[in-house]
């Protein structure tokens, strides 16, 4: 049976790490053995690398709006952000751009938000020389929190707006980062809650209805938000509202969003004069 509350997830993890609890639950839920579940998760981790490693700066999306941004974040830059943060931003852009250009990515939890997890995980693995096994553990943590979000709220932009896609990805990534930094289950829950709370109300307003603008750059925001919320939680900052209640709030906010702000391309940036002009030109 899937986890339907973070409280339940933490309770199941009292005698073992959270990632183990999620893995064991998956084995029971789908009737597979550990080896098979681990092989599937490892395949997802392996597939997150190529969009960043094999990035093609010349590729352009169907509309021509997306492409080349990831290359601009390579190198030292203007000196505002340290190199590690630039690598995170570059990885988010590169994965998001690959997705828009019809290349292979891992939906995590969706294609539109596919850049968030790789953006924080890939540079961290390189910086701290983490093993692939640890990264796979982090993906189980992310999936466990994501499962609760999907069960209690939604991971679909059409249902809950961008908060359900990039917001969920950011919350999952924040929990995964706390795991990799050796934090506790409670800290993961606080990181997840803080990250989701920060993106509450984020609307899904894709220009011309395409997964391009503003989706690609919102992945950068999701990744940076995940890093800061993991940093907060690891430093002892707590979410005043428990994680499950933040997730429930995300659902209520999603239900309150008008249809024009839920992936219809009818409101927000899509409804600006420039957004409309782009849509008409397609």
């Amino acid at each position: 049976m899937a986890f339907s509350s973070v409280e339940g997830l933490l309770a199941a993890a009292r005698t073992r790490p959270i990632w183990e609890a999620v893995l064991e639950d998956d084995c029971t839920d789908r009737g597979v053995d550990r080896k098979r579940s681990l092989a599937q998760m490892s395949a997802l981790w392996a597939a997150m690398a190529p969009p960043v490693a094999e990035y093609d700066p010349a590729a352009r999306s169907h509309s021509g709006l997306i492409g080349g941004a990831g290359a601009l974040l390579e190198g030292e830059g203007p000196g505002l952000c340290p190199p590690f943060l630039r690598q995170v931003m570059a990885a988010a852009l590169k994965t998001g751009e690959c997705n828009a250009c019809m290349k292979r990515i891992v939906a995590a939890p969706t294609a539109g938000s596919s850049g968030v997890l790789p953006a924080v995980l890939i540079p961290l693995q390189a910086r701290d020389s983490l093993k692939d096994e640890q990264m796979v553990e982090a993906l189980y943590v992310a999936a466990g929190f994501g499962q609760v979000i999907a069960t209690r709220a939604s991971i679909s932009g059409a249902e809950g707006g961008c908060q359900a896609e990039v917001g969920s990805a950011s919350a999952m990534a924040a929990a995964a980062l706390v795991h990799l930094m050796g934090g506790t289950g409670e800290q993961m829950a606080h990181a997840c809650a803080l990250a989701l709370a920060n993106t509450l109300g984020l609307v899904c307003d894709p220009v011309a209805g395409l997964v391009e603008v503003p989706c690609v750059t919102r992945n950068v925001m999701g990744a940076m938000n995940a890093l800061s919320c993991a940093e907060l939680a690891l430093s002892g900052v707590q979410s005043a509202i428990p994680c499950d209640e933040v997730i429930d709030a995300m659902r209520s906010v999603g239900e309150a969003l008008p249809a024009s702000l839920r992936e219809t391309g009818g409101g927000g940036l899509a409804a600006t004069p420039t957004g409309r002009r782009i849509a008409e030109g397609m």
Binding site: A2, L44, R104, I105, V106, G146, Q147
Partner: peptide
Amino acid sequence: MNIFDIMGPIMVGPSSSHTAG
């Protein structure tokens, strides 16, 4: 929903509903 409905699939972009589906 199992955890691989949350993480994954590996797919060609740009949309899980409009492309992978």
